[in-house]
């Protein structure tokens, strides 16, 4: 639809690279230029991208090494094996800005790639008000720092939370409880892992309540 848009951006910023997949146009820009590029797209009369749809991020750590999918429990552990095999990929993170122009009915994705040892992106809250929460969300889930954001705090999770859950190396079921769990001596919690699980009343589990760290069982 709008290969022209990529040309437009590349005409102004020669270090941007463009690609296209199934009709989605993407420009990848260096991190330092992201505010410039998005500001240009917002204000240029040929682009007029006034609507910031979404900021998304991807952690490509296990993109190639992940074994297979499947509905079984084993597949939940699959990323863990993949992690052991191939620990690092650089640049590991991608931040994608999905932009749209209501007047011109065209969309474009601006992508920035980040190395995991330097996860800083300049903020675009000066261009779009809505970027405020999106950036907080990405910070919350991936730990990407947005330089210059007025209020970069966790959005969905709580301040006590350690780590960033949508990173591929965060275990799916690693909970960080805020309230200690009750200890019912004879509560049976059905099959599954965890205290009181597997049909054995909690008082009879050989693990014993005291030895279980509520943050680590799953």
């Amino acid at each position: 639809m709008s290969q022209a848009l990529i040309e437009l951006v590349r005409g102004k910023f020669p270090d941007a690279t463009g690609s296209s997949h199934r009709g989605d146009e993407v420009v990848t820009v260096p991190r330092e230029r992201v505010v410039e590029v998005i500001g240009f797209l917002r204000n240029d009369p040929a682009a007029e991208m006034k609507l910031l749809r979404q900021i998304a991020a991807v952690d490509v750590l296990t993109f190639r090494s992940e074994t297979t999918g499947g509905g079984s429990i084993a597949s939940i552990e699959a990323p863990a094996y993949a992690l052991q095999k191939k620990p690092s990929v650089e640049p590991r993170y991608q931040v994608a800005y999905n932009l749209y122009s209501i007047t011109r009915r065209q969309s474009l994705r601006v992508r920035v790639e980040l190395r995991s040892d330097d996860m800083k992106v300049p903020t675009i809250t000066g261009l779009f008000r809505t970027a405020d929460w999106w950036e907080r969300y990405i910070y919350d889930m991936f730990g990407v720092h947005f330089d210059g954001h007025p209020n970069l705090q966790r959005l969905m999770l709580y301040p006590e939370f350690v780590g960033y859950p949508l990173r591929k190396d965060y275990p799916v079921r690693k909970r960080q409880l805020l309230v200690p769990e009750l200890d019912f001596p004879d509560l049976v919690r059905g099959p599954g892992p965890g205290p009181g699980g597997a049909g054995v009343p909690m008082s009879q589990t050989h693990v014993g309540r005291a030895n279980v760290d509520p943050n680590t069982y799953d």
Partner: peptide
């Protein structure tokens, strides 16, 4: 997953 409590009980 990491976010949910496994039952209010």
């Amino acid at each position: 997953n990491y976010a949910t409590l496994q039952g209010a009980d």
